[in-house]
Design a protein around this nucleic acid. Structure first.
Lengths: 150, 150
DNA sequence: TTGGTTATTGCAAATGATTTGCAATAAGAA
DNA sequence: TTCTTATTGCAAATCATTTGCAATAACCAA
């Protein structure tokens, strides 16, 4: 099943004039298998277990290329602003937003139509044109909230 | 009028166990005079014109201290993720959100109650507790949109 | 007003995620 | 298979931000 995604990605990469390499395949697979918005370093470590020859800068370059070509998204969170986290576009829907638990650092994805309402509201007030929105909520997830109640 | 704000800040700093120094005064004044979310470097340059002895790390330490003590807010924008921008809390309301024009890089502040609705929505779905929200819209401001229509 | 305590400063060096130059390698078209 | 050139590995560079340390200056108490 992941293999379908990899095949799809390969087709997309070719369509974009890129080449599918063993490194790219491994990086994509790791990215897709990682449930939770891995960093470049996370992916590097994961792939390295099986293939120690991989270089970290290859991971960075690959992720950047995939991002520039729309196959991957990236985010940063306010509690680790220098760290980029990645997200395959393939398997996820379009716009989704994020909640980050400040205790366990878990990231929860959610969706809401209200952001579109806010975009429209903004255009009503200021004119202009809104291309994208980045919304992140910070707080405690339900488990951490319960744990902290003891 | 800015002087009132500086006096207020001085009182707050003392209340927090800090000391008001000439550097802090200058940094605060520059921050308040800068309309538009300056970076540490912006503030450094501005203060340096009058007082060349100031050191950049003092600017960073001061801004960080002020932020940790709630007198200053900071943000990063997706188009310059490594650069921290600062915002005096004193003169601005509580929660406000931001729009950033991807052409002229202008930052527009706005407010909307809908973010609270989204917070509530999130809690309904996932339980947990939402402490804060960071919403940034990206696009073209009205001027840049008009300019690009020619 | 004067000390004495200690928060704050300036300076230089460290950090750390990410990027880049370059020569070597390998993917894919012919 | 061969040729072109996109991609890799490696090491070094970036660059905003932080940190250690000795010197300085705010502020509290006498």
């Amino acid at each position: 099943m992941q293999f379908d995604l990899i095949d799809t990605a390969e087709a997309q990469i070719h369509a974009l004039g890129g080449r599918m390499t063993s490194q790219r395949r491994m990086i994509l697979r790791a990215l897709i298998e990682c449930a939770d918005h891995p960093t470049a370093e996370d992916i590097y470590q994961k792939v390295k277990e099986k293939n120690p020859a991989l270089n970290l800068s290859t991971v960075y370059r690959t992720l950047r290329w995939l991002e520039e070509h729309g196959l991957v998204n990236s985010r940063r969170f306010d509690d680790e602003p220098r760290l980029e986290r990645f997200d395959p576009v393939v398997q996820k829907g379009e716009d989704h937003f994020h909640f980050r638990c400040r205790m366990c650092n878990q990231i929860i994805e959610f969706d809401t139509p209200l952001v579109n309402t806010i975009k429209a509201e903004f255009v009503d007030c200021f004119s202009g044109y809104v291309e994208s929105a980045n919304l992140i909520l910070y707080g405690l997830c339900s488990e951490c909230l319960n744990n902290s109640k003891e």
